[in-house]
Simulated scan of single mutants.
Amino acid sequence: MMMNRRTFSAALVAGAAATLVSTRSMAAAPAPAKARNVVFAHGLFADGSCWSEVIARLQKAGLNATSVQNPLTTLPEAVASVQRVLARQDGPTVLVGHSFAGMIVSEAGVHPNVSALVYIAARAPDAGEDYAALAKTFPTPPATAGIVFDGDEGRLSETAFLRDFAGDLPEAKAKVLYAVQEPFQKALLTGKTTQAAWRSKPSFYAVSTEDRTINPDLERFMAKRMGAKTIEVKASHLSLISHPDKIAQLILEAAGQHP
């Protein structure tokens, strides 16, 4: 059977992933240190308040949580904003990122205060990797067509936001989130990570099986490549809002406090 170019590229990527995971599995994955601090970074079309439901659950469990209002301007500026917050933590800290913020987690996660990484339906690039090229080896998710630009400022159209970004949320709630989405700058999308913190830190990944913003199979590939403890959540891209209990439980496990 002949493969088309996209299928062949995906097969090559999958093969490379299998080799990498096999290599990593030869050594036991380090257990995360017990942590009481959690730092969150948000992705595109959102702001730091998107973590509110998860934060409430972690605070109830006795964790200290900080959600960074990271700028969606350039990758270095976003990483710097997270690094400043990480530097203020008083001990082991779990660093959590959603969507685009997986780029931030991969870069800033090498900070010595970071004890574990958690990716929620997030990008998880290798050091210097062209994420856009990687994503093109999988079918393009529907939300991509809904991005609109005013000059260099991008946002998601209301139709795409409700259907492809927040598809499993009540419409009234999704409309509120649409109203407060933070625009991003085109320059943000050109950034490449120079670090892959998941190569040296315990990593956890929540795949959104109904995701229409990042292809779920791409999420599975990235999670497998990093050797992450992975869960699958039947959710839209916004599992952190539609399924906060499951996301909070994964973070507690990363903090060494999961029962």
Rank of each mutant, 00 (worst) to 15 (best):
A14T: 13
S25F: 02
E171W: 00
A187Q: 12
P139K: 05
L218F: 02
A10D: 06
S200Y: 01
A65G: 12
P244K: 07
A46W: 10
G151Y: 03
V13Q: 13
N70W: 01
N4A: 01
I147G: 01
M26L: 15
L20G: 00
G62W: 11
G48K: 12
R88M: 09
L252F: 09
N37T: 07
K186I: 11
G128E: 01
A127E: 06
L169V: 04
L188A: 08
H243C: 02
R88P: 01
V39T: 10
M1L: 11
R57V: 06
L86H: 04
H111W: 00
D211W: 11
V79H: 02
R199N: 10
R123Y: 14
A10E: 13
G151Q: 09
N64L: 08
R123K: 13
S239H: 04
A18E: 11
D245Q: 14
G167S: 03
T137R: 13
F40Y: 10
A27D: 12
T144E: 02
V180N: 03
D126W: 04
R57C: 08
A135M: 12
G191C: 10
Y205A: 05
D47Y: 15
N64E: 14
W198G: 05
A14G: 12
M3V: 01
A29C: 06
K173T: 12
K34S: 13
A135E: 14
D47P: 01
A78F: 03
E158A: 11
A122N: 06
A235W: 00
G43K: 06
V54A: 09
A166N: 03
Q195A: 13
V207N: 03
E53C: 00
T74N: 01
P125C: 07
T137P: 02
K136S: 15
V118F: 11
D164L: 05
V38W: 14
R220A: 15
S106D: 11
A11R: 12
D211T: 08
P32R: 09
H42A: 15
E210N: 11
E182T: 15
K246L: 12
K192T: 13
A255S: 10
I214D: 10
F204S: 03
S99V: 07
V94H: 13
V180T: 13
V110H: 10
A133I: 05
T194V: 11
A196G: 02
A101N: 05
L189K: 10
R36S: 14
A29F: 00
I231R: 00
R220Y: 02
G15K: 00
G227P: 04
A46C: 09
N4K: 00
I104G: 03
S115L: 03
L156K: 03
A31E: 08
S242Q: 07
A124V: 02
A35F: 02
T209R: 14
E53W: 12
R225Y: 08
S9E: 15
V94E: 07
V110Q: 09
T159G: 04
P244I: 09
F184K: 03
N4S: 03
T194R: 13
T23R: 15
F221T: 06
P244R: 07
I120M: 14
D168S: 02
F149Y: 15
A33L: 11
F204A: 08
T93K: 10
K201G: 04
L134I: 07
F138W: 14
P139A: 07
G62S: 10
E253M: 15
K60H: 12
V68T: 04
H258P: 00
P125K: 00
T23W: 09
Q195S: 11
G97H: 04
Q195P: 02
